[in-house]
Amino acid sequence: MWSRNNAVPALAAAAGLLVCASIALIFFWIPEDADQGISQKIFYFHVPIALTAYACFGWGALKAFLHLWRRPPGADLESYVAIHQGVIFGALTLITGSIWARASWGVWWAWSSEQLVLFLVLFLFYSAYFMLRFSVEPGPARANLCAVYALFGVVLIPISFLAIRLANDFIHPTVFTSQGPQMAGSMFFTFCVAWAAMLTLAAALYHIELAGKRLDVSLRELRERLA
């Protein structure tokens, strides 16, 4: 079957090309930022990675919802793998955000950065998801628990965002905005390429991990049948 054997390598190749292209654009095409210099270029990594993490969490919640609604086989595994990718990209968001904070404000951590705080909350939440998943016997009960918790996650994202915005009002009365000057056309194009690169990369990783996990399951079944 072409689709099964070639789709993942094709996706991986596309991801590789797009990542290379975005790096080339970021470092050699767009001009350096007048205020922040080279350090501003991390914006083209940080924001696409964060948006990709949201996409992964959303995809995981969608699969979780499908599992609860229609019970298609495999939806539980797909939801888990999507959230796993989401947590990887979420951790990268925290790391790149922290570097950016260091470069522009001289501190490794800034509670005033809403995006950073939100990702910390989400990182804690989804780490708890893994704790839940690994402390329950695999089976239909675990699939349900994980699906419900994953759904709580996507509800928590906007609620937490709102909460953090409200908290900044009483913890840091001066409202901080990361809104820089309006993006020029070349910057916007670069940003879109970088975002597409990250999304394709996440999709490729998702399919690779899924294929591996499915292989594990088939192997175990085969072994049991032989035993």
Binding site: L124, A128, L132, S135, V136, R142, L145, F152, I164, L166
Partner: peptide
Amino acid sequence: MALASRARELLLPLLFLPLAIPIVV
């Protein structure tokens, strides 16, 4: 949820606290 897991007492705060942050705010 925690009831179904092996690490019941340990798991409850981990599952609950991230969800409770907006309440504290």
